[in-house]
């Protein structure tokens, strides 16, 4: 009798330690990035592009990477959404009866989700070489949109899957076609969920480094067309930390802080939206 109580207590302590470890590690990540990044964070960092000799510790900022990342993530998210929304509608509206096919498609997206972005990047680069395309914002957008496509598709799918059959029936009963039902009823009903999906994908896209490494390139300038190379935040962090100069490394930490803050804001907004959505769900 006592023995089993003791065993339970020991495991309970271990469990609490594990849970605390996880929380603490998040705290450590945020804490150490804040600690190292805050001192070098300045207005100059986020308002200027790198000047000559920036990577030797001279003046400038990482505006090029911030703008590049936002453009790239924005483009990739929109592109992925444009492709994935029709697919989700196909699964849930047009092909509603065929559960088997829907599950195969879902499984495929889950697998695509699992493929590491370095593989997408390497594959994309090969295609680019094959067609003689240079690194550019457009190429980056296309490859990153492939990376986030499964994220968006599955997230929207989860929302639309939950819409009750009654809503479809109500719309059909009024004589609406499947397309009209999808665009006017389903899309509206799912819009908060879609917005959350877009935010999650945007966060994923802006943080991705391995896929843009060879496809978007890197430059010190803000691009003026989608056919030019762009800098991205993760790579800016990576390159600055790779230099031997402490001043530049410090700015690398500050860049990491900027990226972390962007991601945190996106995560929190996405969560608030989901919560609000849940409140109003039928």
């Amino acid at each position: 009798m006592d023995k089993r109580k003791i065993e339970e207590s020991i495991f309970k302590v271990l469990m609490i330690i594990s849970a605390i470890t996880i929380i603490v590690s998040l705290g450590l990540i945020l804490g150490s990035i804040l600690y190292k990044g805050l001192p070098s964070l300045s207005w100059e960092m986020i308002s200027q592009t790198p000047k000559g000799g920036y990577y030797l510790g001279k003046e400038g900022g990482i505006l090029n990477a911030i703008v590049g990342s936002v453009l790239l993530a924005f483009g990739a998210t929109i592109l992925a959404a444009i492709i994935s929304f029709p697919i989700v509608i196909f699964i849930n509206v047009y092909n509603r009866q065929n559960r088997w096919l829907a599950n195969i498609i879902r499984l495929t997206f889950d697998i695509l989700w699992g493929i590491p972005s370095i593989v997408y990047g390497a594959f994309g680069f090969t295609i680019m070489i094959f067609f003689g395309i240079k690194t550019s914002l457009l190429a980056g957008i296309v490859i990153v949109s492939l990376v986030v496509l499964p994220v968006i598709a599955r997230a929207i799918d989860e929302v639309i899957k939950m819409i009750p059959q009654g809503l479809f029936d109500a719309s059909y009963a009024l004589g609406a076609t499947r397309l009209e039902t999808s665009l006017k009823v389903i899309a509206r009903q799912a819009s908060p969920g879609i917005l959350t999906a877009l935010l999650i994908a945007f966060g994923r896209a802006i943080g991705d480094a391995a896929a843009v490494l060879f496809t978007a390139g890197y430059t010190d300038y803000i691009p003026t067309s989608i056919f030019q190379s762009v800098a991205t935040l993760p790579l800016a962090i990576f390159f600055q930390l790779g230099t031997p100069f402490p001043e530049v490394q410090a700015r690398g930490y500050a860049s990491a802080l900027i990226l972390t803050l962007v991601i945190l804001v996106i995560s929190i907004v996405a969560r608030l939206l989901t919560r609000k959505y849940k409140k109003f769900k039928i």
């Binding site: 190292k36 966060g203 943080g207 930390l241 690398g252 996106i266």
Partner: peptide
Amino acid sequence: ILAGIPSVIFGV
């Protein structure tokens, strides 16, 4: 939130 943090940040 931990799941959403980019790879590079974990590296840093």
